[in-house]
């Protein structure tokens, strides 16, 4: 258990950044982080070469399971017409990220919040680099379209 505690101290903040970037809810993020380490310890470290990637994959699966249980439409929170009073750009960006479909959102979060490069994202998600490039590009274009008016202000 001491070894796992050390892993927790080293990796939890990084994993949490990914989780929070996906769910943007502190209670959910804490729950997912707890469940991530619970499953990781239960499963064990045998055969794990990259602990960080392993933990992110577990967290990702938990998030997707959570979304499946809840209604998809509620989780995506598709952006409606913004009210004029909503002037905080960062809050708008958070809302806009939450409005991205999961496949775009996770690539965007791993790139912009976790700072991974294309190869690392491709290896972690087990998708081709071309898919990483196209999803990231679409995420950025979609965010720009959603936030266009706010960015002009």
């Amino acid at each position: 258990m001491e070894e796992w505690e050390k892993i927790y101290n080293e990796e939890s903040e990084y994993i949490y950044r990914f989780i929070y970037g996906m769910v943007y809810n502190q209670d959910d993020a804490n729950e997912v982080l707890q469940e991530t380490f619970y499953r990781a310890i239960k499963h064990g470290k045998k055969g794990v070469k990259n602990m960080r990637a392993y933990l992110i994959r577990i967290a990702r699966n938990i998030i997707y399971d959570m979304w499946r249980k809840r209604k998809q439409e509620e989780e995506r929170m598709r952006e409606r017409e913004e009210s004029a009073s909503d002037v905080d750009l960062r809050m708008d960006i958070e809302k806009a990220i939450k409005g991205l479909i999961p496949e775009y959102r996770e690539v965007f979060v791993l790139k912009e919040i976790n700072g991974l490069n294309y190869d690392e994202i491709a290896a972690l998600l087990k998708i081709p680099i071309g898919t990483v490039k196209s999803r990231l590009n679409r995420a950025r274009i979609e965010l720009r379209e959603k936030l266009r008016r706010k960015l002009e202000m």
Binding site: E13, Y20, A29, K42, L89, R90, E112, R140, L151
Partner: peptide
């Protein structure tokens, strides 16, 4: 605009995880 979004995303304050998480994990185990 794309660069501005990227810049703002990096400034988003991500809260700290709860300090009790690992204890809860140990208890569940």
């Amino acid at each position: 605009d794309i660069l501005k979004i990227s810049e703002e995303v990096k400034k988003i304050e991500i809260p700290e995880p709860s300090p009790f998480i690992f204890e809860r994990v140990k208890n569940r185990l």
